[in-house]
Simulated assay, not measured.
Amino acid sequence: MKAVTLFMLVATLAGRASGDVPLPERSYKILMLLPVSSRSHMNIIVALAEALAQRGHKISAHFPDLPPLLDIERNQSLTLMNTHFSITTPLPLLPSQVEVGAIHCRPGKPLPQDTESWLTGAGTAGVIYFSLGSLTRGDSMLPEYLKVFLEAFRRLPQRVLWKYEGELEGASDNVRISNWFPQQDILANHNVKVFISHGGLLSLQESIFHATPLLVLPIFGDQPRNGMLVVDSGIGRVLVWEELTADRIVDTLTDIINNTKYKENVGRMSASLRDQPMTPLDRAVFWTEYVIRHRGAPQLRCPAAQLSWVEFLMLDVLGLLLLALLLLLLLIRRILRGISATLLVGSAKKKKE
């Protein structure tokens, strides 16, 4: 068994391993450095780790004497990016930069019978799914916002699945509360009309993958930017917490559900995201094992990674150009002074004559 250290940088950062990728000739020990340890962000890493483990590789040892992270980063051969051109701005990428956006997304699984029956019982009005992610607890919501949502949901014809931790008083009969729901299986259900989300990247990808329009309520981090993507792509709308009212929530949800453009737009984006020659997970597995097979794959490494920040920004070249410009200006100044002095001497001679 050969030990291989693999550093994966998952950026502006869960599954099965498909038979499309040939099995490796041997198993390896793979060290995974996880820069973010929140539950939602771990989903990306867990998907790849489980797929690699299914292929015989070994992430159960600890290595206390690691080199500095900066040295490991400079020595990396592969960057797995949690992006995809169909759901973000297309960018030119190096061969070592591989897009694996929506790596954690998967087809929906059958729901528990009681949940399935509850969704079906909503009839043609459908269901609204409400979750603010794994970091924000429902019971941490300010009372004034909680009151607004309860009033808005009471006035809607749809049923509401609300991921809410803790006890909730005053909820109407069309609202079902739980501290956890199988989110992807919920979003995959055809009767779910809208996903009310905080706009986290993973939830955004899941909603697009399952073609569910969004109502985004950004809280922090990249969520406002993701909300702008939702609006610009026409796959949903955004509301600001400070401006929330029951009327505004009802009107916005009614628009998203009744206006077919949101469902059509997210359907087209979902089709584009799904239309790939191999799944993002298979692609991540292939390139990970490619680096292993080629003993670190130095051919993938960008030479710029070895440059200092002065060299990378070409500050030395810029300094040389500025120095040359300064010398040129001094030379021009001296020439102009010489010409001026000559002209003054000539003028003085003429006056004397």
Rank of each mutant, 00 (worst) to 15 (best):
G170T: 12
N174S: 15
V216L: 12
N179P: 15
S203N: 13
S172Y: 10
S178E: 10
V192N: 00
I208R: 01
P213G: 05
H198V: 06
L217C: 10
P218V: 11
S172N: 10
L168I: 15
D173P: 04
N179T: 14
T212V: 15
A188D: 04
F195S: 02
P213W: 05
S178N: 15
N189I: 07
S203Y: 05
V216F: 07
I196L: 14
A188M: 08
Q183F: 13
I186M: 08
I208G: 01
S197D: 08
S178R: 15
S203T: 09
V194H: 01
P218A: 14
S207M: 11
E169G: 15
K193R: 15
N191F: 07
I208L: 11
E169M: 11
A211P: 00
V192G: 01
L204T: 05
V192D: 01
R176I: 08
A188R: 00
L214Y: 02
A188S: 15
A171Q: 15
L187Q: 02
Q183M: 13
G170I: 11
E169S: 15
L187P: 01
T212F: 03
A211Q: 04
G200K: 03
S197V: 08
E169C: 10
D185C: 10
P213A: 12
L201Q: 06
A211T: 03
R176E: 06
K193M: 14
H190L: 10
S197A: 14
I219F: 14
H198A: 13
S172H: 14
V175S: 05
F220P: 03
H190E: 15
Q184W: 10
L217W: 11
A171W: 07
F195T: 00
T212A: 06
V194T: 02
I196V: 15
D173K: 12
H210Q: 13
I177M: 12
A171I: 12
I177S: 05
T212G: 02
E169F: 12
L187S: 03
P213T: 06
E206Y: 05
V175C: 10
V216G: 03
H210A: 06
A171L: 13
F209Y: 15
L187R: 01
G199R: 02
I186D: 02
P218I: 10
N191R: 14
F181H: 06
F220M: 14
